[in-house]
Design a protein around this nucleic acid. Structure first.
Length: 839
RNA sequence: GCCCGGGUGGCGGAAUGGCAGACGCGGAGGUCUCAAAAACCUUUGUCCUAUGGACGUGUGGGUUCGAAUCCCACCCCGGGCACCA
C-alpha cells in the first residue's frame, strides 16, 4: 500500500461525490430510534459564505455527525433566508432583478457548503423566496388572522428613511437606529399590519424557565425585552375648567401604588390625545404647544438618550388624587412615553428620580411618603398621617423599600414594589372602583408590514364596502410579480395589474394590499418546514413535525437573541394553539457561537479584511479548516483568525495520516503485549472518554487537543520501543480509534483512512462511535504529588489500589528532608492526586 | 446608571477547590540533506547566589491544609439594556 502522504485535494472531492451518490445524509422518520434535530441558522444569500458560516456550520456538522455515529436518527437540513432588502439594494446597484442576484448567490453558497463536506439532507432544502415556501407563509398569515392574532392599526411607528420602510421595535437597535443600515429611525403615525405577539407575552416569559439549555444571557435579554412589570392602574378624575367635576377619568399605570400620597403632579406625554383639548383657547396653550412641538421635532434618537434635561408645561388643569382627594396639576412632560403604559403618569417626586428632577426644575412640592428606617427623617415622620413636611432636602429621590409616612390610614405600612403597602392601597382603590392591580409589558406588537418589493405579499384585500378581507385559502399563493422594476424605484403599489382585483366577499372591485411581510416572518418557521419540505398539500404533516420537533440543538449568532429567537418562539406557540404542532417551544438547546475576527476587527468586505474560506480550502483542504476553526477557541467565544495555526492543524492531520498508514501497512497478528503497549491502550481509552465528553459539552478545542495527545502517545510509543518489539495491534487499534473519533471533525480524511488505508468496505460515517470504558482507561499505578504545607516537595508512584497507610508512609519518606521531625499536624490525602502534609 | 460575560506565558488557549500554563502557534537548538523543503527529535512562564530555590493567573483583602477556581472591595475590557412610571 502506498503512503504517498495526506493530500486533501485528491480525497475531498472524491468522497463528497461518493456520499452524494450513496445518499448518505438523506433521512426519514423512524419511530423505533431516538431522533436528534441539529440545526444551524440558515444563511442570507449575500455573496459567498464567510468564516462565520464556516464556524457555525462546522459546529453543527460535528454535532450532527457524532450523533449519527452514536445511534440517533439525525435531521440536519439547510436552506436560504432569501427575501429581504439587501437583495433590493444589490439589484439597484448592479441593475438586475433581486431574484437574479439572490439565486446566483444561493448557487454560489450551495457549492461552497458542499465543498465543506457538511452532512446536510439536501432534499429538504427550503428557499424562502420560492413560491412553494412563501405560499405557506401567507397561509400562516391567514391562520393567525382567523385566530385574532393579526391586526391592522394606526400607531406611531419606526420609519427608516434610508430603507424606505417601517420597522418592528426589535429592529431598532442601539440609540434608535435601523438594524440594517444604522440610519436614525423616525417616528411616524401610520396604519400598519401587526402580529399580536403581546398575546403571548406572559407565556414567552414563563417558558424561558423551561429552556435550561439556552444561555442565561439570551434568556435574560428576552426577559428584559418582554419587560413585565407588576403594579396597579389608578384612575384620576379630571377637574373641569371651572373647578367642576368633569366625570372624565385618566388611567395611569404605576409599580408603586404605595407612593400615591406623594403624587403632587400629574403628567401626560406630549403625544397624548387629551392634551390639545385641555389647553385649547387658554393662556396655557402656547407653552404646552411649544413643549409638544419640541418633542415632535426630536428624533427618536434624541428622545431616547436618557439623563437629559426634562421639559414640560402646566396645562392649567387638575386631576383629583383618588387616595386623598387633593387636586393635582396636570403637566405635559417630554419624558413621558406615549407607547408605554397609558401615556399618563402619576408623578411622585420623592420616590422617582425623574419626577424629582422635574419637580426641582419647576418648583413643585416634594413631600416624602416612603422613608427608610435608618433615615433621620424617619423619627419625625413615622407616625404622621397628615402631611406636615411638604419638601425634603434630599439630593435625589428615594426609590427603595421602607415605611409609608404622611399617608393617611396607610402610614406605618411596609413600602416597596409588591410590599404590603402597595397591596393595601391597591385593594382600597379597587373597593371604590378607582383602581385595580395590573401587569404591564414592555413588549409591543410585532409590526410586520414593509413597504418593500422583495418580500412575501400580504394576502389581504381592501374592499371599499367589506373593509379588510383575507385572500381565500384556495387563491394562495398571492404571487410576487417578477415584472417590478425596482431600479426605477417601483414597488407593488405602482403595479395595478398586481393590486387591482375583486373582493372575494362581495365581488366589487377592490385592491390588494401592496405591502410585503417582514423577512423575519419567513425565518420564524423554516425549521418546521424542513420536517416535511416537499409537501405541496399541507404546510407539514403533523406526525412528521411531531417526530422531529423540537430542534434539539440550535446553533447561531448572538445577534438573534431577541429578534429571530423571540419571533420563532411566538410562532411555535401560536402553531401549537392552532393544532398544527405539539411542542410549545421550538429550540430545546441553543448555542450562540462567537464571531470570527481578524486582528480584533469584525471581518467585512467594506473593511477589506476578509479571509476567504475558499482560499484556505484551496491551500489546506476543508478538513484542516474545519478542525482548525473548532480548535482555535471554545465555540461561544469570539476568535481571532491566524494563518499559522491553520498550517499547524494541517501538519497534525498529516501526522495522523502517516501514523494510520504505517499501522495499516504493518498489520499482523497480535504480538506479546508489553507494558508500553498497555500504556498506549490506556491512553486510547482515556481519549475516547475525553473526546466523547468534550463533544457533548461543545468543547471541541479540547476534544481535538485530546486527539493530538493520542497521536503523540502513539508516536512516542513508536519512538521508545524498538520496531521489532512493537505491538502492531496496539498501534492499529489506536489508529482506528483516531480515525473514528476524527470522523465528525475531518470527515474526508477519516473516510479515506478508513476505506483506503485501513481497507474497510463501508463508510466510516456509518460506524458506531467508540464506546468509553473507564476500566480500560484506568492505570495500575499512579503518580502522586506530595506537598508539605501546600507546596509540592516531591512525588511518589504507588499502586492504584494501594492502602492509604502505605501511600502516606511512602509520601512521608519522599519529603523527609522537608517535613520537620515532629509528627505532622494533619495529613490530607486526595486519592489519585496528591498528599498534603501539614506541619 | 443597571444587568450579563471576561481579564492566565510572546500568541490562541487548558485547568471550576488539589501538581498553573494541557494542546497548538511562534521562538531556539539538533538529526537527515551537497543544500533547501518536508519529516523527526530536544527545548521554551519570570527571576535568582541555579543538580536547587523564590515568584507567578488584573489589584487589594478574606475563607481553606490547599484558591486561576469560593467570598468581599476595587480597576480594566467586551456585550446587552437604559426617561418603561
Amino acid at each position: 500500500m502506498g503512503t504517498t502522504g495526506y493530500n486533501p485535494q485528491e480525497i475531498e472531492g472524491k468522497w463528497q461525490a461518493e456520499w452524494e451518490r450513496a445518499e448518505l445524509y438523506a433521512v426519514t422518520e423512524d419511530v423505533s430510534r431516538p431522533k436528534k434535530y441539529v440545526l444551524e441558522m440558515f444563511p442570507y444569500p449575500s455573496g459567498d459564505i464567510h468564516m462565520g458560516h464556516v464556524r457555525n456550520y462546522t459546529i453543527g456538522d460535528v454535532v450532527a455527525r457524532q450523533a449519527a455515529m452514536s445511534g440517533f436518527k439525525v435531521l440536519h437540513p439547510i436552506g436560504w433566508d432569501a427575501f429581504g432588502l439587501p437583495a433590493e439594494n444589490a439589484a439597484i446597484k448592479s441593475n438586475t432583478h433581486p431574484a437574479e442576484w439572490t439565486y446566483a448567490n444561493i448557487e454560489k453558497q450551495r457549492a461552497s457548503l458542499k465543498r465543506m463536506g457538511f452532512s446536510y439532507d439536501w432534499d429538504r432544502t427550503v428557499v424562502t423566496c420560492d413560491e412553494t415556501y412563501y405560499r405557506w407563509g401567507q397561509w400562516i398569515f391567514l391562520k393567525l388572522w382567523e385566530r385574532g392574532l393579526v391586526e391592522r392599526k394606526a400607531s406611531p411607528v419606526n420609519w427608516c428613511s434610508d430603507c424606505k420602510t417601517v420597522l418592528a421595535n426589535e429592529q431598532v437597535v442601539g440609540d434608535g437606529q435601523c438594524w440594517r443600515c444604522k440610519t436614525a429611525v423616525e417616528k411616524r403615525e401610520l396604519e400598519q399590519w401587526y402580529f399580536r405577539i403581546t398575546e403571548y407575552a406572559q407565556d414567552l416569559l414563563d417558558d424561558l424557565e423551561v429552556l435550561p439549555g439556552w444561555p442565561e444571557r439570551v434568556r435574560t435579554m428576552q426577559a428584559n425585552w418582554i419587560g413585565r412589570s407588576e403594579g396597579a392602574e389608578v384612575e384620576f378624575e379630571v377637574v373641569g375648567p371651572a373647578g367642576d367635576p368633569s366625570g372624565e377619568r385618566i388611567t395611569v399605570f404605576t409599580t408603586r401604588p404605595d407612593t400615591l400620597f406623594g403624587c403632587t403632579f400629574f403628567l401626560l406625554a406630549p403625544e397624548h390625545p387629551l392634551v390639545p383639548g385641555l389647553v385649547e383657547g387658554t393662556g396655557y396653550e402656547p407653552a404646552v404647544t411649544a413643549v409638544v412641538a419640541a418633542a415632535a421635532r426630536e428624533s427618536a434618537v434624541e428622545r431616547q438618550l436618557g439623563e437629559r434635561e426634562k421639559n414640560g408645561a402646566f396645562t392649567g388643569r387638575y386631576v383629583i388624587n383618588p387616595v386623598n382627594g387633593e387636586q393635582v396639576p396636570i403637566w405635559v412632560a417630554d419624558y413621558v412615553l406615549m407607547d408605554y403604559g397609558t401615556g399618563a403618569v402619576m408623578a411622585v417626586p420623592s420616590g422617582d428620580q425623574r419626577d424629582f428632577e422635574f419637580a426641582r426644575k419647576y418648583g413643585l412640592p416634594i413631600p416624602p411618603v416612603v422613608i427608610a428606617e435608618d433615615d433621620p427623617l424617619f423619627a419625625t415622620l413615622s407616625g404622621v398621617a397628615e402631611r406636615v413636611a411638604d419638601d425634603v432636602d434630599w439630593e435625589e429621590a428615594y426609590a427603595g423599600d421602607g415605611v409609608m409616612v404622611q399617608s393617611g390610614q396607610f402610614t406605618g405600612t411596609q413600602a416597596g414594589k409588591g410590599k404590603e403597602g402597595a397591596r393595601a392601597v391597591t385593594a382600597w382603590l379597587a373597593e371604590r372602583g378607582l383602581g385595580r392591580s395590573s401587569i404591564n409589558f414592555r413588549l409591543r406588537d410585532w409590526l410586520i408590514s414593509r413597504q418593500r418589493y422583495w418580500g412575501n405579499p400580504i394576502p389581504a384585500i381592501h374592499c371599499p364596502s367589506c373593509g379588510l378581507v383575507p385572500v381565500p385559502e384556495g387563491d394562495l399563493p398571492v404571487m410576487l410579480p417578477m415584472g417590478v422594476d425596482i431600479t426605477a424605484g417601483e414597488t407593488l403599489a405602482d403595479h395595478p395589474e398586481f393590486y387591482e382585483t375583486t373582493c372575494p366577499r362581495c365581488g366589487a372591485s377592490a385592491t390588494r394590499e401592496t405591502d410585503t411581510m417582514d423577512t423575519f416572518t419567513c425565518s420564524s418557521w423554516y425549521y418546521l418546514r424542513y420536517c416535511d419540505a416537499g409537501n405541496s398539500e399541507v404546510i407539514w404533516d403533523r406526525s412528521k413535525a411531531d417526530y422531529w420537533m423540537p430542534v434539539d440543538q440550535y446553533i447561531g449568532g448572538i445577534e438573534h437573541a431577541i429578534l429571530h429567537l423571540l419571533y420563532s418562539r411566538f410562532f411555535t406557540k401560536a402553531f401549537c394553539d392552532l393544532g398544527l404542532l405539539s411542542s410549545a417551544e421550538p429550540f430545546t438547546n441553543l448555542l450562540t457561537q462567537g464571531m470570527v475576527k481578524l486582528d480584533g476587527a469584525t471581518m467585512s468586505k467594506s473593511r477589506g479584511n476578509v479571509v476567504a474560506p475558499e482560499e484556505m480550502i484551496g491551500r489546506f483542504g476543508c478538513d484542516s479548516l474545519r478542525a482548525y476553526i473548532l480548535f482555535m477557541a471554545p465555540p461561544d467565544k469570539d476568535l481571532d483568525w491566524s494563518y499559522g495555526g491553520l498550517e499547524g492543524m494541517h501538519r497534525w492531520l498529516g501526522r495522523v495520516w502517516r501514523l494510520v498508514a504505517d499501522a495499516a501497512e504493518k498489520r499482523m497478528p497480535a504480538g506479546a503485549a508489553s507494558e508500553k503497549a498497555a500504556g498506549l491502550r490506556r491512553e486510547m481509552h482515556r481519549v475516547i472518554g475525553k473526546v466523547t465528553a468534550d463533544v457533548e459539552r461543545f468543547q471541541f478545542n479540547t476534544a481535538i487537543a485530546a486527539m493530538m495527545e493520542l497521536t503523540n502517545a502513539a508516536y512516542d510509543y513508536r519512538k521508545s520501543v524498538p520496531s521489532a518489539e512493537q505491538d502492531p495491534t496496539a498501534l492499529l487499534e489506536a489508529s482506528e480509534t483516531l480515525t473514528l473519533l476524527l470522523a465528525p471533525f475531518t470527515p474526508h480524511l477519516s473516510e479515506e483512512m478508513w476505506r483506503v488505508l485501513l481497507g474497510y468496505g463501508g463508510s466510516v460515517h456509518l460506524e458506531g462511535w467508540p464506546v468509553f470504558d473507564p476500566a480500560l482507561a484506568a492505570a495500575d499505578t499512579v503518580e502522586l504529588a506530595v506537598q508539605v504545607n501546600g507546596k509540592v516537595r516531591g512525588r511518589v508512584v504507588v499502586g492504584a489500589d494501594e492502602a492509604e497507610e502505605a501511600v502516606v508512609a511512602a509520601a512521608r519518606e519522599a519529603v523527609a528532608a522537608w517535613a520537620q521531625d515532629a509528627e505532622p499536624r494533619k495529613i490530607i490525602v486526595v486519592p489519585g492526586k496528591l498528599i498534603n502534609i501539614v506541619c
